[in-house]
Amino acid sequence: MSFDLPRNVILPVDAVDVRLDPGPHPFERDNRQAIAENWRREVRANPALFDGTVVLLSALAYRDSRLVGRCHAVKYSTFMLWRQNRQGTGAEHAYAHAMLVAGDNALVAIRMGAHTVNAGRVYFAAGSFEPVDFRDGLVDADFNMIREVGEETGIDLSGAARGQRYHALSTPSGTVIFRRYRIVEPAGEIARRISAFVAAEAEPEIEGPVIIRHAADLPEGLMGHMKPLIEWHFAGKD
């Protein structure tokens, strides 16, 4: 199967069948020394880094409106080495975005904190899949989205209306799986709630909320994969 899916196009996704393989990822198995050496350099540059557990794909395909794949738990230090030179590694990254839609149809994204790897960058509150996001070996993308938004913004999406299906966009930097989550409050009120949550946190992950009100309203620091998602939303796609 390897990696077999259309690139740079938004795909409708009715199911995410990505399973966690208990075996080691070949990239981590074959690069342990380089991973350790690079991690020492990364920590010297940013002592706030934590070598937790995330997942990397070893296969992903798009079949009959489904994403089918295989991933492995790896250390964050493995991910940090891999992201420096992704070509020919036999690994790819997938992550999920809850597209937070306010009652006035504006989008509410976040800007990452200065101590993070993506300092100053703007995207929807999100994080890599972790082993906790899997149920009987199968990824639960909605659980990941709700968990990450709650941890970063304090917003509970568990009762929010969800889009009919997932969508996905695969680019050279990774595959983002996204879904609309609608909240009745206007964007300004949601942003106020997020700002209050961030102000109360001892070590917040994010700098604060970013409101996007139309397709041309692209904030400074926007991650490259976000522009097609924003255009898709304001074009009324589903």
Results as ranks from 00 to 15, higher is better:
L138K: 08
A202W: 14
T153K: 05
V18G: 13
V139A: 06
E220P: 13
A187H: 04
A34D: 02
R40F: 12
L67H: 11
V149E: 12
A196L: 04
P228Q: 05
E207K: 03
R41C: 15
R147Y: 04
R180P: 11
L49Y: 08
A61T: 08
T89A: 07
H72S: 03
M1Y: 14
G88E: 07
W39N: 09
R66S: 13
V55T: 11
F3R: 01
A125N: 07
D156C: 05
T78V: 02
E151W: 15
G90S: 06
G88C: 03
L60D: 09
P24N: 08
G188T: 03
A202G: 13
F3L: 03
V74A: 12
K75T: 15
K75Y: 14
V74T: 12
Q33N: 09
D140M: 03
T171N: 05
A200Q: 11
H214M: 00
Q164S: 04
S158E: 13
K75C: 12
S128W: 15
P6M: 07
Y95R: 15
F129N: 07
G69F: 06
A200I: 02
A45H: 06
D51V: 01
G127F: 09
F124R: 00
D238I: 04
R111H: 06
R180T: 10
Q87E: 06
A191K: 01
R182E: 15
T53N: 04
R41I: 09
E185C: 00
